[in-house]
Design a binder for these strands. Sequence first.
DNA 1: CTCTGTGCATAAAACGTTTTCGTCATCATT
DNA 2: AATGATGACGAAAACGTTTTATGCACAGAG
Lengths: 337, 337
Amino acid sequence: MSVTIRDVSKICGLSVSAVSKALNHYPDVSEETRQRVQRVAQEIGYRPNALARALKTNRTYNLGVILDDEMHDNLLHTYFITILNGFKQEAERQGYDITLINHNIGGRKLSYLDHCRSRNVDGVCLLCVDFYNLEIQQLAQSDMKLVTIDHLFSGKDCILSDNKAGMHDILSYVVEMGHRRIAFLHGTHSSVTDARLSAFYEFIHQHGLEIPPEYVVPSHYHSTGHAFEDTRKLLACRERPTCILMADDYCALGGMDAIQQAGLSIPEDISVAGYDGTALIQKIRPRLTTLRQDGQKVGRMAAVRLLDRIENPDAPAQRPCIVPGELLPGETVKRIG
Amino acid sequence: MSVTIRDVSKICGLSVSAVSKALNHYPDVSEETRQRVQRVAQEIGYRPNALARALKTNRTYNLGVILDDEMHDNLLHTYFITILNGFKQEAERQGYDITLINHNIGGRKLSYLDHCRSRNVDGVCLLCVDFYNLEIQQLAQSDMKLVTIDHLFSGKDCILSDNKAGMHDILSYVVEMGHRRIAFLHGTHSSVTDARLSAFYEFIHQHGLEIPPEYVVPSHYHSTGHAFEDTRKLLACRERPTCILMADDYCALGGMDAIQQAGLSIPEDISVAGYDGTALIQKIRPRLTTLRQDGQKVGRMAAVRLLDRIENPDAPAQRPCIVPGELLPGETVKRIG
DNA sequence: CTCTGTGCATAAAACGTTTTCGTCATCATT
DNA sequence: AATGATGACGAAAACGTTTTATGCACAGAG
């Protein structure tokens, strides 16, 4: 089949162990034979079998990424993809591969934890999952090394996009532009939503804004359809908001659609702001005012933390790494008052 | 450490081999002991070590995906992500995991082929790579089971998005709308570009359209920036085209930007069409006329083909699987003449 | 009673590595 | 000359499985 270490050893007239040691830079092998071994290995194209090596060393140099939801299309959300991209780049840089951990595997249901164990990944990144799911909880409480994105399990490593500051920045901007009647069409129940909602309430409280309860409407991330409907309802309020903060950029698109179909124009009649600041969205007109999350960095830091954890397993848990965002003022929020 | 087959065997008072056979549905084990073994395995949470199993059986149930370019951000192109998503879903359905094959792994350069071999993937999907790269060629000529997307290596399995028909459909539509002076801002050298370009030339030849050479301008996929510049040049032609076909939807955005900045409006002054029909693009106004590629299906079929190949390695190579697209008439192509 | 088959279980080799321990020179030190 | 240290290598166990070959008891057939 493939060329093994045994082949190298035979050609060199050495034992298998000698070859192994030569290739792995052990001290007790003469410089001369090391050279010879390496040359022969090179010549006949020897590549260590990662499986066999991992079986022995308990290191696969493989990181799991869990990225799933009931809809099975989270891969399509640009924010998460950007994170995955950053994660992949850093992992690659440090010599790790990444494998996507599936939920149902070959008919049989296999829990995430079992799956990770079975594949012997060195660590796992929980990116875009339902953190309240029981299986995820089980995984989080196991001894599996893991890093989570935008959700903190106590004692575990974690990367957070700074939603508190993000909300603060965008609200400050909107208020600065003269808005008082600000609606918030927010996402579903999650840590991210919690962070953003509480930042929202804290802000309006501190600034003495009077926000009627119907201005805070639960919707769904990544769904132009829901945003469309929920925005329509918002427009039907007795007293219309002058500005709507959307759950994310996708929602902003759906919402803007609803606004325009209602015969209103943006930002003359009503202002809109998004969240995420994905690359594509910045290309469309009118340029959406939004808060860019640095998904690339989030992903990269996640890999850094996870690999750090893998290298020194007994180090105390670090504080969550908080990645700042950046306000992108566009053309969809009008100065009023 | 983890619970192994040996633990099960001890509890059951059986040999390791008996347990293995019981779990793997071998015939020569009594129904009674099979039941007992399965119960015990279940109870103590035994999960076979995929590494050890793979080492012995030469099957990892792991598929590689190569997705790379010099820019390292192909993950961010929606078309490819959609394909990856479809691929992942089908692979998952059939019990396979997927791992992303890196190029540089841990400082050391490792060729794609070596990397695949070393990880012992059962097969590999070439999605979005430079097919003219020497390493890719080497991989394609090896005995590694592989499937390619939108590029045919002779004798290998392949999925093609129907670019010929796609170009034909969109050109027919545009001509039907009365356009004669049609420009084509196309992507970089690749099979996809070849297919689209030849379909373009074939069409204009068959329909007796006179297209000045400067209407066919090489640009870059997935780059609003290049499209912006190249569109500006197009607008400077003595006789402006009435319609521009863009390399993809990203380019369409860049191009539309250039058009609007030139003080022209779409589609009144000039028409534009994209290519890809990604989900997000369909939400923006004006709705882009474009050709939707069914990336989901492309990915799914790729997995189907690859797994088929893995199951029966000696079957003759099938004809390329051609996945049709769908014209999405939007609002960016005006009826003229 | 012997032979042969059958049903069930075990022993052991194998997959390709890493790593611990031991061996055996050689050479310097008492 | 005995001892010890050092340097270079090999033997073998181990990682957790699968699979082939083997054994053994018991049945029925001659």
